[in-house]
Amino acid sequence: MADLKTRIAKRCAKEFKDGYVANLGIGLPTMVSSFLPEGVHITIQSENGFTGLEGSVERGDENVEIINAGGGYVKASPRVNYFDSATSFGIIRGGHVDATVLGAMQVDEQGNLANWIIPGKMYAGMGGAMDLVVGAKEVIITMLHQQFNKKTGVSKPKILKECNLPVTALGVVDLIITEMCVIKVTDEGLLLTELHHDFTVEDVVAATEAHLTVSPDLKPYDISE
């Protein structure tokens, strides 16, 4: 599982261009910053109030006045700038964040995203997720292709014809990166653009409920340095 997540993070890192301002969700998305291609330097926005997050700190080196959006202590880059929450979300909603990377519970053919609530099960709140996906120029979803149920041992598709969980936003997803493949959300629906060599197109189709168009220019899933 850890290997699969690393694979996804490595592939996602290739989407970043030098100078990008990015907001990375907690968990897998945060790993992306460890795999940036050589010469690509990004500025990470932390929605609790700064630009210039540089990674986690060792125990004992914490500055208690520098937390990330998950409440963890982090390091700040020399070009850090701190601001209040209205400015932070102004930067997010105003289109000044080039890309946001988030996990998802469900994504559908229209690029609708559900990643904040499971009625009756999970009640955490949307936090900054709704603003991020509406405001960022590019919304990249990184996730395992299917939902694995530990109790039943059955995997269920997360890429659907239509989200059945309450959505986080409508039509916002640009790119989906899973351990199997890369899928682009286009006006004509979902386009399979890259395939990992462990899988066939049939494997991906079987693990996906949504209709997939296979790109005539289908490429191998590339995570080489």
Binding site: V21, T43, Q45, T51, G52, A76, S77, P78, R79, V80, N81, Y82, F83, T87, I91, H96, V97
Partner: peptide, 17 residues
Amino acid sequence: VKAGELDPDTFQHSGVL
């Protein structure tokens, strides 16, 4: 100035803008 030359909290508007 260079980034990091002054206390970052001195600045009041973010360079991402």
